[in-house]
Design a protein around this nucleic acid. Sequence first.
DNA 1: AACACCTCCAACCGCAGTAAT
DNA 2: GATTACTGCGGTTGGAGGTGT
Length: 355
Amino acid sequence: MGKPPCCDKNGLKKGPWTAEEDQKLIDYIQKHGHGRWRTLPKNAGLKRCGKSCRLRWTNYLRPDIKRGKFSIEEEETIIQLHSVLGNKWSAIAARLPGRTDNEIKNYWNTHIKKKLLRMGIDPVTHSPRLDLLELSSLLSSSLYNSSQLNPAGLLGFGSMFNPSFLNFATALLSSQNKTLEISPENIEQNQTGNFQCQNQYETYQANQVQNPIQGYTTSQANLNHLSTNPNNNLSCQMSLPNLWQEYDRENISISTPKGFFPVQNYGYHDSINQSIINSLAENQACFSDQNNIPNLSPFGSLLSTPSSNSTPLNSSSTTYVNNNGSSTEDIERDSYCSNMLMFDVPNALNVNGCV
DNA sequence: AACACCTCCAACCGCAGTAAT
DNA sequence: GATTACTGCGGTTGGAGGTGT
C-alpha cells in the first residue's frame, strides 16, 4: 500500500501550470537546486504539492529537455529498447538524451503502438500477430484452391495468399506449436545454453542464473553494441523476441522492393527458425543478404542503424500500407517502417483490435 | 456555424523502493 | 524492526485543439 497522495491538502493548486508558476519554480531551482520537493513549493512560494513541482521540472522546465518531434533515429531507438526493456520508460529515457520518460511513453502510446498494430506487429511482444497469420491461413485454405476465384485480387489480401507466404505462415505456426513440445532436457538446455534469455525482461530478472542482461540493464551498457556485434557473447546468446529476417518478396504477388519479414524465435530453439528458413528456401525465396545467410541478429534487420540497413531510411519504395490519411511525415515514416516489416495487413482485418 | 468525435500530451494518481527516524 | 517521509516510476485521465460532418 502506497502513501496517500501528497496533494490532498486543501489549498494546493492542481491542473496546468501558469507562466508565473513556472518562473517561480525555475528561479527557485536556479538558486537552490532541486530536491527536497516536499518543502520546495512552500519555499518557492508555490501553492503546489512537491510532487507536482517535481513533475513539472523533470518533464517540462528542465533546461536540457529536447523539444519537437521525435526523429526516425529516436523512434528506432525507442522500439529497439522497448523490445528489450518493455515499458521501462525511465530506462528508455536514459538512452535518449533530452527526452523524458513521460514524453517517450506518450509517444509510444500515441504513435508507435498504433503504427506497429497497423503493420500487424504486436507492440507488446514485438512479434508478428500470429492471429492474423492464422486467419490468413484459414482464409487461404478455403479460397486459395478455388479455381473460380482469384483470391489475391480479392479484398486486397495480396501477398497473404501467395503460396510462399502461406508456407512461411504455416512454418511459423508450426514452430509455435513446437514450443509446446519442449522436453525437460530442452528446458534444461535453455537454462544453460543459448536460450536462457527469455522474451520478457522480468524473466531475465527472475532467472537465478547469473544473467548478463542484468548487468546490462544496471550498467546501461551500449545496447547497440550488444545487439549488433556478432562476436559479442550476449548478442549471440540472446534470443530476443524478434528475429527479423530479410525476405525477398519477388514471389509475392505485389511487386515491392526487398523487405523484411519477422520471425519470432520465442527463445527456444534455432531449429524452429531453421524450419522457417528451409520453408522459405524451398519456395525459392532467397535472402537478400549478400552471402545468402539469413540475418538472425535480434535487431539487425528491423532496427539496424542506417549504415547497416539494407533499405535506406528515406526509401520511397513503399506507400502501400498507408491509407488512413496520415500526414506526409507519417506517410514517410510508415514507409520507412514498412520497409522494416513488409507485411501488409489488409484493413479488412481489424488490426487495431486486441490480440 | 455548430456539433460530435478524435488525437495528443501535460498532469495526476497510486504504488513501490529506499532512506531516515 | 516498525513507522514515516521522500522520491521515482508506470498507468491513466482530462481537456485543448484538430478534424469531419
